[in-house]
């Protein structure tokens, strides 16, 4: 510790210069969700709880299938960005890295599972 200068201690701990791009990406996915979420509420949510045949027939139509697929993908992408910010605010070091990695797996895994299910129902 005694051999470290102030400069050496600070090096590598500054901005990654990716924050602005991250924020712009969040604004773009938010803008997409402003359109997708109301469509999702109108076209997809009412079928939750319906009989199996009705659900299968519903997602066999292109519009509900596309709205559900896009909403899941964009929402999970937006979640990945948001949860990363929260983790970076409250955790450090290896915990932070592992938590971000786990959330990337969870968000894109969830999106993939949703897409697979819609494809199975639609085709």
């Amino acid at each position: 510790m005694e051999h470290l200068t102030d400069r050496k201690r600070a090096e590598g701990r500054g901005s990654a210069r990716s924050g602005t791009l991250h924020h712009i990406a969040m604004m773009i996915s938010a803008g997409a969700l402003v359109i997708l979420v109301p469509l999702f509420l109108i076209v997809v949510v009412p079928v939750i709880g319906a009989a199996h045949a009705e659900v299968a027939a519903h997602f066999a139509r292109p519009f509900p299938a596309l709205v559900a697929a896009l909403t899941i993908v964009v929402a999970m992408h937006h979640f990945r960005g948001g949860v990363e910010m929260m983790i970076q605010d409250y955790w450090q070091g290896m915990t932070r890295k592992l938590a971000i990695l786990a959330m990337i797996l969870l968000s894109y895994g969830t999106a993939a599972a949703g897409l697979y299910a819609i494809a199975r129902l639609a085709l």
């Binding site: 939750i48 199996h52 659900v55 299968a56 997602f59 559900a68 899941i72 969830t110 599972a113 949703g114 697979y116 299910a117 819609i118 199975r120 129902l121």
Partner: peptide, 8 residues
């Protein structure tokens, strides 16, 4: 998504 996967 669980509900959707179940439907599939």
């Amino acid at each position: 998504v669980w509900w959707l996967v179940a439907a599939a």
